[in-house]
Amino acid sequence: MKVSVVTRSGKELLKGGIDLNDSATVADLQEAIHKKTKKFYPSRQRLTLPVQPGSKAKPTVLNSKKSLKEYSDGNSNTITVVFKDLGTQVSYRTLFFFEYLGPLVIYPIFHYLPVYRYFGYKEERVMHPVQTYACYYWCFHYFKRIMETFFVHRFSHATSPLSNVFRNCMYYWSFGAFIAYYVNHPLYTPVSDLQWKIGFGFGLLCQLSNFYCHILLKNLRSPDGNGGYQIPRGFLFNIVTCANYTTEIYQWVGFNIATQTVAGYIFAVVAAGIMTNWALAKHRRLKKLFDGKDGKPKYPRRWVILPPFL
């Protein structure tokens, strides 16, 4: 089979195209492109079928596991695919590690080092116990996330563009500094003893539940990362589709009940918004996939992310 690879502007990426045998898969084609171009390894490539000029339809993305034949109308022995360079790719593990490393390092700097001198506060700072516990709580949270990244989560083979690393680090690192600045401030006003104890207690309970949720999610995926979608079950998943996000959001609520800063609440609201979008998409996908037809199980009635609201 003869494959002609063109860029989105219509130019030929590889002069003369590529010859592959008839049983070749899309993955084989990607390997061949990598071999010839040297630069574009498979996860950097996005291959689509050409669309009619002027048509607004979304182009079909080629699935690397499928055979090229399936995309070539069966009869013809030639196929044209459109190539897009997705840019440098990194694994999700790398992305997560750098995201979480920032807050883990930045927060203690505000707690232990005399940084407030540079903000114009010369006097010696007296730490309230809630500020010290907040620092432990915060560090435990991000330490847990990094450990989970390396020892719990099972990632698919999907990668993320390098630019996302910068974007996500900006988000996590700046919010980390923003919250750390106010919680460790020399003029910080603590809440009552009872309130911060309830806050941290509730938050810690949510963190532990969150850890258990991640273990359950890991067991849904097969070790090779090709599992496909499953109905999440067990523990809180019997009530909520994305119990992992639920517990994550509620543990931030616990932290904020204890520390009470506007910065912390802003972060919680933004994070909840982002996770709600993901949760809605996942819920929709699962409901569509498990529609109860053709012997497939029917997706049970559940909350999406924030019981008792959503």
Binding site: Y182, Y188, T189, T259, Q260, T261, A263
Partner: peptide, 9 residues
């Protein structure tokens, strides 16, 4: 300005 109950400035 700090200090205030909302811990914000």
């Amino acid at each position: 300005r700090m200090p205030n109950k909302l811990n914000f400035s």
